[in-house]
């Protein structure tokens, strides 16, 4: 079977891995690296449950081949917390009850992370646009939007205090 050695960074750590060509990034994250925070929903790029960041840009890991991330930096939900502490974004999700079953949450947080990094002060419409590719069947989205707004405001406060 056609395989390739890929070198990449996963949540800040360097990794070198032998992958067969037809495995997705999602499969390699979950099955080889045991990073099972990233979920598989639809497997067709519609639901966003498998959203991860590749070189800072959000992508659906189900429609990305593992071999394609050779030389890239990959971030998953496991890289979101800072040691034992939740990130401000994660804390805002908890505080606002922005999840019920939790299946969409890792992808939702990765989309929110990508948004806040390209736009630290998003409007409500920009937040909605940024998570339009992440389906949630529990919350009705309001608490998720509120959590992202709060996390953005908190980041702004912190950088103002600097």
């Amino acid at each position: 079977m056609d395989s390739h050695t890929i070198e990449f960074e996963i949540n800040g750590k360097r990794a070198s891995l032998e992958v067969v060509s037809h495995r997705t990034l999602l499969q390699v994250l979950r099955e080889d690296l045991h990073l099972s925070g990233t979920k598989e929903g639809c497997g067709e790029g519609e639901c966003g449950a498998c959203t991860v960041l590749v070189d800072g840009r959000s992508v659906t890991a189900c429609l990305t081949l593992a071999v394609e991330v050779d030389g890239c930096s990959v971030r998953t939900i496991e890289g979101e917390s800072e040691g034992p502490d939740l990130s401000p974004l994660q804390e805002a999700f908890v505080k606002n009850h922005a999840l019920q079953c939790g299946f969409c949450t890792p992808g939702m947080i990765m989309s929110a992370r990508a948004l806040l990094e390209r736009n630290p002060s998003p409007t409500e419409d920009q937040i909605k646009e940024a998570i339009a590719g992440n389906l949630c069947r529990c919350t009705g989205y309001r608490p998720i939007i509120q959590a992202i707004r709060e996390a953005a405001a908190r980041r702004k406060d912190q950088s103002a205090k600097g």
Binding site: S58, T64, A132
Partner: peptide
């Protein structure tokens, strides 16, 4: 067109 994460690819 599509969602942000699809448009990235």
């Amino acid at each position: 067109m599509a969602s942000h994460q699809i448009r990235n690819r």
